[in-house]
């Protein structure tokens, strides 16, 4: 393209850089030189559009002929036929258009000049002049009071929307709810999700029970329940009392080898539910924090830091397992004022 070889010429007679050889030679397509190839391409494009039409008809037939009956196989058939019809309808159009562009439309490359993004100097000057004129007209430069007043008004007015929004969006903002759960003294432990109270005798060796507080069925079907359950779920395990290591301040929190721990991970709150009976390890399937149930649910692997909170349990007169109290610390993930 450019054959400037003046100032870059060195003493040796060689330019400092190679010069652009310009565009490569244009290569003709078969369809450009052979009328038969051109005709064939045209037929192919038409056939592809035809496939699209068939696809559309097919999807319409599928829509009206195949009614999903609610079974897995029926729904799958409807999904498959409808989807294939749509796919053919779309792919037909797409492939046809591209093939048309590639094989039939002119493939001579064109060159377009670029211009620098920067505005020319005179345009810049004119632009600055217009802004200056505007500022002068507004008088803002001379009237400082106006500037301050306008800015204050503009800066303050979003409060009219932000304050009502922010104050209501967090509900009652009472974050101390984190530290209480539905458990209380004497509350029976019941199976999750069926709600059957559990006797100590039911919990034979090696069993793991997923536990919720024994509340009424109405409460279990209310919406508040999900939020309560999110804090109250407990895992109940019986192991050989000889395997159990109990901290001195937690003696009496278990009953005959039966221990209850919060199921909410102290990492980021997933339900820690994978109990490996032989090792007494509890594994969280989300991030693989592993807790040793035999040893105060201390962390043995993974990203959690704190042991799972323990629910102190005992039995009532009828032999049912009951909570001695609520948890002694907030369940779930750590937060800033957790210990306050």
């Amino acid at each position: 393209m450019s054959d400037e070889k003046s100032s870059t010429e060195l003493t040796s007679g060689h330019p400092e850089k190679f010069t652009d050889p310009g565009m490569p030679e244009h290569r003709q397509r078969r369809a450009d030189v052979e009328p038969a190839a051109s005709k064939r391409a045209e037929r192919q494009v038409a056939a592809l559009f035809g496939i699209s039409v068939i696809g559309t008809i097919g999807s319409m037939v599928a829509y009206f002929a195949i009614r999903p009956d609610g079974t897995t196989a029926g729904t799958r058939l409807s999904n498959l036929t409808l989807g294939l019809g749509i796919a053919f309808a779309l792919l037909g159009i797409g492939l046809a258009a591209v093939h048309w562009a590639k094989a039939i439309m002119s493939d001579h490359e064109v060159v377009e000049e670029r211009h620098e993004q920067r505005s020319p100097d005179d345009v810049r000057e004119a632009a600055v002049q217009k802004l200056d004129d505007g500022i002068a007209d507004s008088g803002i430069a001379r009237r400082g009071v106006l500037k301050g007043a306008a800015l204050s008004a503009l800066a303050l007015f979003p409060l009219t929307i932000a304050v009502p929004l922010v104050s209501s969006v967090g509900g009652d903002w009472n974050v101390s709810k984190f530290r209480h759960t539905r458990w209380e003294k004497g509350m029976r432990l019941a199976t999750d999700p069926t709600g059957r109270p559990i006797r100590a005798a039911d919990v034979t060796m090696g069993n793991v029970f997923h536990v919720i507080p024994d509340v009424s069925e109405e409460e279990r079907e209310s919406h508040e329940w999900i939020t309560e359950k999110a804090k109250a779920v407990v895992l109940l395990v019986r192991m050989d009392p000889r395997d159990l290591k109990e901290a001195p301040d937690r003696e009496g929190w278990s009953y005959d080898g039966i221990v209850a721990y919060s199921k909410i991970c102290t990492h980021v709150g997933c339900p820690v539910a994978l109990y490996e009976q032989q090792t007494h390890h509890l594994l969280c399937p989300c991030h693989q924090s592993t807790f040793d149930v035999a040893d105060g649910a201390k962390v043995v692997f993974g990203p959690a830091h704190r042991p799972l909170p323990q629910l102190p349990i005992e039995i009532d007169d009828e032999g049912y397992l009951v909570a001695q109290s609520d948890f002694h610390e907030p369940v779930g993930p750590s937060y800033w004022e957790r210990l306050k």
Partner: peptide
């Protein structure tokens, strides 16, 4: 093995 027991009360 690792699997806990789910007896008939559970």
């Amino acid at each position: 093995q690792s699997m806990p027991v789910f007896n008939d009360a559970n």
